[in-house]
Design a protein around this nucleic acid. Structure first.
Lengths: 130, 130
DNA sequence: ACCGTACTACGATGGCTATCGTACGAAGCA
DNA sequence: TGCTTCGTACGATAGCCATCGTAGTACGGT
C-alpha cells in the first residue's frame, strides 16, 4: 500500500485532521425536525435512543446488542448522528454515543421528553399494561 | 360492464357496506408510535397536519393547495389515516379530514403538542426568527 | 511485529415510497 | 340524462433505505 489512505466517500486524504478521526455532526441550526422524526421512526434507532436516554452518559456502539449485523448497526448510528439526535466521538477503538439532549431541548422544547415518554408508554402497553 | 364493482386492492364486493364509502382506520390500540413518526417525517404530511391543527375542525382534501398532484395528495392522506394521525369521512363528494387529537393525546400525552410546537419553531427559525 | 477488538467502507439487493399520469367511481346539480 | 367536481385505483418509475457480506482501517496490547 503506497501512501496511507484515509478514504471517505471518494475523498482521499493523506493525514487525519486530528489524532482521532472526527465525525461530521450537523450544527444546531442545521438540525431539521423532519430528519429527527425520520431517524426516530425506525424501531431499531428508537430503541438505541431510548437506551441512550436511560443510560444517562455515553455508551459505546458495542454496548448495544441489536438483532442486526454490525454494518447495519453502524448505519443506524450514522443516521442518528447525521440527523442531529446523537453525538459520536471516538475514544480509543471504541466509539462513544451520547444524546444531544441540550441541543434538541433548545431547538424543540419538550419534544425529546414527549417522544421518550411516548415510547415508554407504548412498550408498557405492548407488555399488557399492568 | 357487468355487475357493479367496488374494488379495493384485489377485493371484489357487490355492494358497499353503507351508503357512504367507509374508510379503514386503526383502532386506538393499534396505533404505533413508529408509524406516527414515519407519517410526520414527510414535509408534505407534516404540513397537512399543521394546517389541520390550525384549522381547528375538519377540512376537506381540496382545501389544501399542495405542490403535488391529486393522486399524491390522496396517497399522503391515506398514510396519515392508516397511521392513526387523522380521521377521514366522506361528506357528499368531499372527504373531510380531522386530527385524532384526543386519541393521540390519550396514547401519547404531550406528543402531538410538542410536535406541533417544534414544527412552528422550525418555521419561525427558517423565516429568520424575528 | 503481530494479534485482537471495534468499527467502517463498499457493493449488492430487495423492499418501500413519493411521485406522476390516466382512467374511473361517487355525489350533486342542471 | 348528462356534466362537473372531488377523490380513487392502478401501473410505472425513480429514489431512498434497511439489510447483508466481505474486506479493510484504526487503536491498543503483547
Amino acid at each position: 500500500m503506497d501512501p496511507p489512505k484515509y478514504r471517505r466517500k471518494g475523498a482521499l486524504v493523506t493525514s487525519p485532521a486530528v489524532s482521532s478521526r472526527d465525525l461530521p455532526h450537523p450544527e444546531v441550526a442545521e438540525i431539521r425536525l423532519e430528519s429527527v422524526l425520520h431517524a426516530l421512526a425506525d424501531p431499531m434507532r428508537l430503541r438505541i435512543v431510548r437506551e441512550l436516554a436511560a443510560g444517562g452518559g455515553e455508551l459505546s456502539c458495542s454496548y448495544f446488542d441489536l438483532p442486526v449485523t454490525k454494518s447495519t448497526t453502524t448505519h443506524h448510528f450514522r443516521v442518528l448522528r447525521e440527523s442531529g439526535v446523537i453525538r459520536q466521538v471516538y475514544r480509543g477503538t471504541a466509539k462513544m454515543n451520547g444524546l444531544r439532549r441540550d441541543d434538541l431541548d433548545g431547538l424543540f422544547p419538550g419534544l425529546l421528553g414527549a417522544l421518550l415518554d411516548a415510547a415508554a408508554r407504548q412498550t408498557a402497553r405492548d407488555l399488557g399494561d399492568g
